[in-house]
Structures are given as structure tokens and as C-alpha cells.
Design a protein around this nucleic acid. Sequence first.
DNA 1: CGCAATACAATATGGTCATACTGTTATAGT
DNA 2: ACTATAACAGTATGACCATATTGTATTGCG
Lengths: 218, 218
Amino acid sequence: MPRTADHQARRRQIVDGVRRVAVTDGLSRVTMAGAAREAGVSVGLVQHYYSSKEDLLVDTVRSVHEDIEQRVDAAVARAERRFARIEQMMAAGLQQLFPLDDRRREETRLRHSFAGLALENERLHEHQRRFDESLAARAAQAVRNGLLCGEVLPGTDPDQEGYAVISLADGLAARLLMHAGRRQRAWARAAVTARMAAVFPGPCARESKVRDADADAV
Amino acid sequence: MPRTADHQARRRQIVDGVRRVAVTDGLSRVTMAGAAREAGVSVGLVQHYYSSKEDLLVDTVRSVHEDIEQRVDAAVARAERRFARIEQMMAAGLQQLFPLDDRRREETRLRHSFAGLALENERLHEHQRRFDESLAARAAQAVRNGLLCGEVLPGTDPDQEGYAVISLADGLAARLLMHAGRRQRAWARAAVTARMAAVFPGPCARESKVRDADADAV
DNA sequence: CGCAATACAATATGGTCATACTGTTATAGT
DNA sequence: ACTATAACAGTATGACCATATTGTATTGCG
């Protein structure tokens, strides 16, 4: 009966405000008023859509995780068309967790900032956990596929491998966030490709390393 | 001429107050008054020793990093007496970064909480960076020793290996902090020992895996 | 039309917190 | 013993911020 609005769009607008403030000023300096200003709306409207700041932050972290998952999936899909080997698709996906361009830098910063907050907020913690599990599950699935194709050593535990490889990517991403010099970026890429080579020895023994061109394939 | 006090001890007392509050309530809920209360001193005294909250937090992170480094060094020294192989000493050191008992859980929580804050504070960022480099340098040195003893494949870049292995340990620690179930703990240990086995193939080909007893050697 | 529900804005309020400020106690050096 | 100075305590202040409250505009619907 009354006036209507595009809730989805409004929430996205507000969450984008939070994300911009969090990226430029830091997550701890996000305020209701600041986010509202950045989003171009009033404080009252933010309250209209989110009943507390915590709710707003939870929706923000959900948005960040969603974006990252989408980018990972897109990268894997692209790699699927260009490459044959599973390890190449997996490497393409893992690269999306690294802060190697503006977009990824922003999302990685947000993700790791929220990871810090998640240590002191139950709801954020839960989201973080679920997201990490989702990433590990993707990696595990890739390993499972590798097992089926005979590209992975029989006896390998896909869940364990997924857990380990996501942990590695996460740790590398955190360090790149602190200092992403030339060497560090190269080391991070090398660490991922080396891990891939170890997990995917191929049907016969590996004869050559993964081409470095894959590394930064968009 | 005037009344004197043990500055070192007082600072430690205050920093311990901060650490206790940060562990129980979360780093973001640390306040001057709360830390003072926990330390059993007045707000005025905290101000007497630290001219700002930022100074206090910087000294706190320094204290955390110092404790972790000491524990790592102690663990490596103990392993040096009990084991022959460098990889065993290194594994012992890396285990100290995992939240596998109360003491380590506390320090790991603090370390990763501060890592989040470091993304928005220049001084904390600098401390974090230095600490990470210090850990990586230790790992690199171990690899260098392995090269000399012929336990590591010639051509290995010690700095790159150190960087990668610390990143892995860090990522695993962060995930254990979120969820340290039986499987996850076992996976984390396995990931470290597997990495060690890959880096230290030994003078001749590896015949057996590292004994699992090392894993939780205190 | 008209009215009720919703979208949105602006301001008020109450609490928290870092820091400033003021006061007190104890002691090293003369 | 006196006093300057450092060690320590308690309170005041002013800013910031999440949330509550109140008011206004818009529009779907009977």
C-alpha cells in the first residue's frame, strides 16, 4: 500500500559506503554516520534497513565474502576454458585470494580486517568460519576431481589437502597485505604453483613446471 | 632525588593488564580504565608511563612478539638437544605458532588480533612486519643450515622457503584460531611435517616420515 | 480522494572513553 | 629536616558515537 523502494539496492548502497570507509580509514573507524555520509543517505535510513551496527557489519562481511567467491568461481570458469589441467584451474582460483590488483587488494584488506574482528564477535566469527569452509570445500573438490582423473596421488585426503592449500594461500595473502614487494609477490606465486605441482604430480611423473604465464592470468 | 620505581616492572604490569583484557574481552574493548583496573593501578599511572593509548598498544604488541620469539627459540633449543635433524628443530619452532595449549592460544589470539589492527595503524603495522620478517629469517637460516649439511636440495632459495613456510604456519594458525577440532589440529601438524619433508629430503632419499611424536613435543 | 503504511531525514540523548588536570605521597639528595 | 621531584590517585572535560525519537514526504490501495 505505501511507498516502495528497492531494498536490495539500498542495502548494497549502504554496505558499499561501509566498505569504502573501511578500506580508506580502517574498519575500526567505521561509524553509522560516516558510512551513511559515504553512501549518500541519512543515518535514519541506515537504521531503517539495519537495526544495529552489528547487523550492518554482518551484512558487509557477507557482501565481501560473496564478491570474493564470485571472483574465484569466475576465474576458475575462465581457466576451465583455457587450460586442461585441474591444477591450473585451482591455481587461478587461489590467485584470486592475493592482493595483486586494486580490486583484490581492497577485498583482501576487508577480508582480513573482518577476520580480526571475528575473533571478538560471535556472528562475524560464524560467517568467517563458513566462508573459510566454503573455500576449503572448493579446493577439496578440485583435489577429488584430480583423484578421479588420476592426476593426484591415490591415498591423498582431499579435505586435508584443501585445508592446507587454503591455509597457505591465506597466510601468503596476509603477508602480501603487509608488504607486497616484487620478491614477495613472486614468492607467493611460486609457493602456490609449487604446492600445486606437489599435489598434482600428474598421470606420469612431472616433467616440466607449470608455465609462469598462468600465475597472473586474469 | 625523588621517589623511584621499577619502570620495567610497572610497564610489564600494565601491559599484562592490557593483554588480559584483550584476551578475555577482545582487543577492541581494551580501554585505559579497563587495563588499569585489570593491572591494579590507576588511570593516572598508566598515563604516567604511556603518553597515549597508541603507545600502550605498541608496547603491548612488542611484548607479545617478544614472548612468542622467546618461546620459539626455547623450543628450537630444546629440539636441538633431543633431535639430530634440522627439520625436527624447525618443526618444533613452527608448532609454537599454533594455538595448541592455553599459553599458545592466548598469544596466537593476541598476535592475530593485533595483525588486524595493524592494517589501520602505521606503527603497529611496522612492528608486525618486523616480527614476521624475524620469523622468516629464522626459518631461512634453518634452511641455509640444511643446505650446508646437505639435507636440503641444492638450488633452494632459503629466503623464499622461509617466507613460504612461515606463511603456511601463519595461515594454519589463523584457521585453528577459528576452529581447532581434532581433525583440524591433525591436519595442521601434518601440513607442517609434510612441508618439512619436502624441503628436507635428506642426504639420501627419504625413507620414512617424521615420527609423529615430534608434533606436540613441548 | 484519503489514509495508512512505508521510505527517509534530522535531531536528541545517554553512555563511553581518551586525555587533561589537580592533588597527594614518598623519597633521594643536600 | 627540608625540599624538589618523581610516583601515584582521582576526577573533570570534551569529543564521539550508537541508538532513540520525532517529524515529513511519498505512494499504493480501498
